[in-house]
Nucleic acid binder design. Structure first.
Lengths: 202, 202
DNA sequence: CCGTTATTGTATCGCTCATTCCAACTGGAA
DNA sequence: TTCCAGTTGGAATGAGCGATACAATAACGG
């Protein structure tokens, strides 16, 4: 009489599809990822993909959500295992250096015009971005209490875009930006913008 | 007896194709741009495109070169008309805010895996990036002579990636990053990394 | 005028795309 | 055993892709 439990095989297949699709999508973007390629890499037929996901757009939304969730879990785990003290930007930069799938895919989708007839996946990524921006803002205000509201907003935006930019730089094969250099820069700007240096943002 | 002058119509057509292709490509990326779409927007038939360019890859290389050249000309012109004094990062940031086609397209192509069988267009964009990085480096050293070589390298890389990142931020609809804020940040970092503050880069 | 060359128009190829259809199989519930 | 929902196999569909072939035109030099 209990609610029918979902078939174990079904969940496993969904996972296989998501893993395969995330790999391909983060390399090839939305337009460059074909359903048949996902089918081939996941080992499951075309029809299984369309049984688990309504269409390509729905699959991509799921990829972003799933990959983001995985990355958040990893971040939390590694933060707990290491020094559990306060916010550590160097740690964040280092973790991003592992190129989580959802960021590469999300950046491509941010830059590309959304496919006509639905842009749920892109919107979901932008939502994650806004959440991250807010997290950065509060983290900065907590680490640098002398920072004013407008300065914190500007610095959070700059930090996020610096993260995006260093991701691009890594993809371009440039190597000058280490996590250390980047986190030091945030510190320099934060202290400079605190207190008497308000001229940075009017 | 003079070398046969190229037909006027030919050059005009090439220009129409490049303009149409640049618009579409910067919005849709490599995979998302179809030859027939370029044909439709440029008003010229399919065969004309393949007469002017060897294939899709060749067309994209031409787009990047052409759009980059146009942008450089505009930058130089507006720099001459305004204050012709030294390097002005705020001016550069403002000019980039006009979203030149080659950057949006170049960023997409940097993030996407190159299409198999040739990645000339992407390589050309990466070459432009390296040139820009070098230009930034010498500009920084000229504006801040106390900056050491390694500091200038790191700061140039950070500035370039900051440019990329703020481009992404603009595409994501975020508005906190003004040219003024960004150029002030470069100044803060440059002065902080000059002279006695060498701890930033070891 | 002619002939040559540059460019366009149209049709077509073989292929892959996203999506759909449906028959087959699977495993628990009745 | 029977039944049925969940899931897979595999083929089909219609559209669009990049690219090519080739006749038709347009402009120029002679």
């Amino acid at each position: 009489m209990s609610a029918r439990t979902t078939r174990a095989n079904g969940r496993a297949s969904r996972r296989q599809i998501l893993d395969a699709a995330a790999e391909i999508a983060s390399e090839c973007g939305y337009q460059g990822t074909s359903i048949s390629a996902v089918s081939k890499r996941s080992g499951l037929p075309n029809s299984s993909i369309y049984w688990h996901f309504a269409n390509k757009e729905d699959l991509f939304t799921a990829i972003i959500n799933d990959s983001y969730e995985q990355w958040c879990d990893e971040l939390a785990a590694s933060r707990n295992s290491a020094n559990g003290d306060g916010h550590n930007f160097e740690h964040l930069y280092a973790k991003l250096g592992q190129f989580p799938d959802f960021i590469r895919l999300g950046l491509i989708m941010t830059l590309e015009r959304p496919p006509e007839g639905g842009d749920a996946a892109r919107q979901r990524f932008l939502e994650i971005r806004r959440e991250s921006l807010e997290n950065l803002r509060t983290a900065l205000l907590s680490d640098y209490p002398d920072l004013g509201e407008p300065q914190a907003n500007a610095l959070a935006a700059m930090t996020l875009s610096q993260l995006d930019g260093s991701f691009v730089a890594a993809m371009a094969g440039e190597t000058a930006l280490t996590p250390r250099v980047l986190s030091d820069a945030v510190h320099t700007l934060a202290t400079s913008m605190s207190a008497g240096h308000a001229a940075h943002v009017e």
